[in-house]
Design a protein around this nucleic acid. Structure first.
Length: 158
DNA sequence: GCCAACGTTGGC
DNA sequence: GCCAACGTTGGC
């Protein structure tokens, strides 16, 4: 069972939005980056995911979710009216994929990017912390997953 | 194949 | 709002 991290801007779609969806499930559409797409195509049902709030006042991991449907074509790529419409993608050979994710729980407290950086030494190779890393879908090593979840139980830093 | 220009991401 | 880092596009 693999672990992942997926970013979303909370102004657009937050952990609360996911929790409020029917069946607390959402199709993770709009990814238009090949590396991120390829990671999604590797996801298996039951894989665990950190829900990361990006581009906001306090970026960080806000909750947990899991994969409930493995990769299939992102329908928004064929929708002319959609912001993520891709005229170069053909239905017979879809370029972009998505997975369905399901809410698991909110973290008891947000684990901020700043806090994660304090633990950089214990998270070697964690792509989120790499300089210039902007990928919205990244793999998380299991030992990193466990370490980060243990931080939740500690009191907030500062 | 190179690389400049451009658009996007996302922390701060 | 600024800007660094990155990905993509397209001229040559």
């Amino acid at each position: 069972m693999a672990c992942w991290l997926m970013k979303s801007e909370p102004d657009t779609f937050s952990i609360d939005d996911l929790a409020n969806r029917p069946r607390q499930t959402e199709a993770w559409d709009g990814v238009r980056n090949y590396q991120a797409r390829n990671f999604m195509r590797r996801m298996k049902k039951g894989d665990r995911i950190f829900f990361y709030h990006s581009n906001c006042a306090v970026p960080g991991i806000a909750g947990l979710m899991c994969v409930v449907a493995e990769a299939y074509p992102d329908p928004t790529q064929f929708d002319k009216k959609h912001h993520h419409y891709d005229p170069t993608s053909k239905p017979e050979e879809p370029r972009w994929s998505l997975v369905d994710v399901q809410f698991e729980r909110r973290l008891k407290r947000l684990i901020s990017l700043a806090e994660l950086r304090e633990h950089e030494a214990q998270l070697p190779g964690f792509q989120l912390l790499m300089k210039g890393s902007r990928l919205s879908v990244i793999p998380v090593r299991e030992e990193h997953w466990d370490y980060i979840l243990k931080l939740e139980k500690k009191s907030a830093p500062g």
